[in-house]
Measured scan of single mutants.
Amino acid sequence: MDEEYDVIVLGTGLTECILSGIMSVNGKKVLHMDRNPYYGGESSSITPLEELYKRFQLLEGPPESMGRGRDWNVDLIPKFLMANGQLVKMLLYTEVTRYLDFKVVEGSFVYKGGKIYKVPSTETEALASNLMGMFEKRRFRKFLVFVANFDENDPKTFEGVDPQTTSMRDVYRKFDLGQDVIDFTGHALALYRTDDYLDQPCLETVNRIKLYSESLARYGKSPYLYPLYGLGELPQGFARLSAIYGGTYMLNKPVDDIIMENGKVVGVKSEGEVARCKQLICDPSYIPDRVRKAGQVIRIICILSHPIKNTNDANSCQIIIPQNQVNRKSDIYVCMISYAHNVAAQGKYIAIASTTVETTDPEKEVEPALELLEPIDQKFVAISDLYEPIDDGCESQVFCSCSYDATTHFETTCNDIKDIYKRMAGTAFDFENMKRKQNDVFGEAEQ
């Protein structure tokens, strides 16, 4: 370990593993360490099931009705991949897709007046949907046509809207959309967690709705994908990429100290040895004095023996409960997957309800979601602090990732990755940087 590296990475969460992969592909010498004996950090999948019970201090362990412990891979952080989103792009560019198998999530649902409705995925579904009345549908269709044709580089498509100054509230007004449709559009399509976006320039919202539609167009059922064997497969896929390009991995490796000289990182000390480096990437748990708390998320993992009611017996789905429907500031989400994804025993389902904490009784906040899941065989409640770095790391060369937020997709995580890359490399992130180099010394032969 007593060696000189360009970059040392602490923690094998998804953000850290993707950055480690990119740095290795770009010719950097990388050492990647984790104090845990497993990959994934906060974003790991726990197996066998006995391990999950232990982690949540349920000492009696799983009953026999849960089947074989080894058949379970339970995500600690519930997220899906947008089919046309940035993480899929990263997987394709790096060819990490060859280590993973994905399934399309069967449906996306939205909560309205105590019931759940399928988010329409085709024009026919939209016309048949009970989510809105006849005239509302016509106006909504006009709005969707506007979004589909919108091109930020072609003012002819703006229809009198200025993407940089017109607020989204004004765009909704222009198409005369009612409150329910606005809730549905902002939260189930643009996937905002709160209503803060309404008074911001509309460009980002329009682009988010386009991303949803384009992702949906790829597979038809929903815009989301999920990897077989759980999300823990993602960091491992990128760790393989890093290793192929010469990255060194050490799990179960305690970090005793991060060594600084004149305010700059110069190395990491572990078990009496020092590895030197020019730059350091880590998750917040490794540098508690360089991060601040930015809120909390509650996630309740529920094991069920039945599909969720009114989802047409889907073996995977997402449910969004827009905040307006339950008098909150932030949406509540449910991600459900099952034995069909090799993450649970035969006939079992895993539904994870999550939201940003707003009160001193977080469990009560998630109740509307839990009511949709009854009866629940077993619950595991996790309340996590969200951390963000206190500075950009440019001076110390210590670059810290943000905690995983309450969103049900990876777009915010990818933004964090691109942002850290830019601060480390001094140049904007470009997907081309992730391409495997042809015929290089570490390149794998085609399968």
Rank of each mutant, 00 (worst) to 15 (best):
F56M: 00
S108C: 07
Q346E: 05
P307R: 02
V25C: 04
I352T: 04
E60K: 07
Y99H: 06
F442K: 13
D180N: 11
T359P: 02
Y333F: 15
V206D: 03
E16S: 04
R299L: 02
G246E: 04
N327T: 06
L59E: 02
G178A: 07
F380S: 04
M33N: 14
I301L: 13
C400G: 12
S354H: 14
L280E: 12
I182T: 09
L373Y: 15
V105K: 00
N73R: 11
T311I: 08
M90H: 13
E388G: 07
L127P: 06
R193Y: 15
M250N: 14
V181L: 01
I301V: 11
I332N: 04
Q179Y: 14
C277H: 13
R290H: 09
G232V: 09
S45H: 14
Q86P: 04
K54T: 13
D283C: 13
G220D: 04
A314R: 03
F80C: 08
A382C: 02
S316V: 04
M132T: 08
P254F: 15
A353G: 10
T165A: 11
D331A: 03
M66N: 02
M434I: 07
P63S: 11
F184T: 14
K142M: 13
S43D: 02
A445Q: 06
L304P: 02
S384F: 11
A406G: 10
S285T: 07
R55C: 08
V381R: 00
R173P: 02
V25S: 05
V334G: 02
Y117I: 04
F140L: 07
R276P: 10
C394W: 06
R292V: 03
I18G: 02
L304V: 09
P201S: 09
Q200P: 06
G237R: 01
H306N: 00
F431L: 11
G11M: 11
Y229S: 03
A294C: 15
E363N: 04
Y349D: 02
A275Y: 14
I332D: 00
G160L: 01
M260R: 12
A128T: 11
V398M: 11
T413A: 12
T248K: 00
R218L: 09
S129Y: 00
Y286S: 08
P235S: 10
V441A: 11
A128D: 00
G85W: 01
D405G: 06
D377E: 00
K435E: 07
T408R: 09
V441R: 11
Q318K: 00
T412P: 13
M90A: 14
I8T: 03
G232D: 06
N26L: 05
P63R: 05
T359H: 14
I321K: 13
S215T: 03
K112D: 04
N312T: 13
Y421H: 10
E358A: 05
G267V: 03
I303T: 08
F146V: 03
A126G: 05
A369E: 09
E432C: 06
D257A: 15
K379H: 11
E16T: 01
K103C: 12
L251Q: 07
M434N: 11
S270D: 01
H409D: 13
Y111L: 13
G295I: 10
E444A: 06
Y39S: 02
G27W: 02
G85L: 10
K221I: 14
F135R: 14
I301S: 08
V357H: 03
G178W: 08
H32D: 14
G69R: 09
I383M: 11
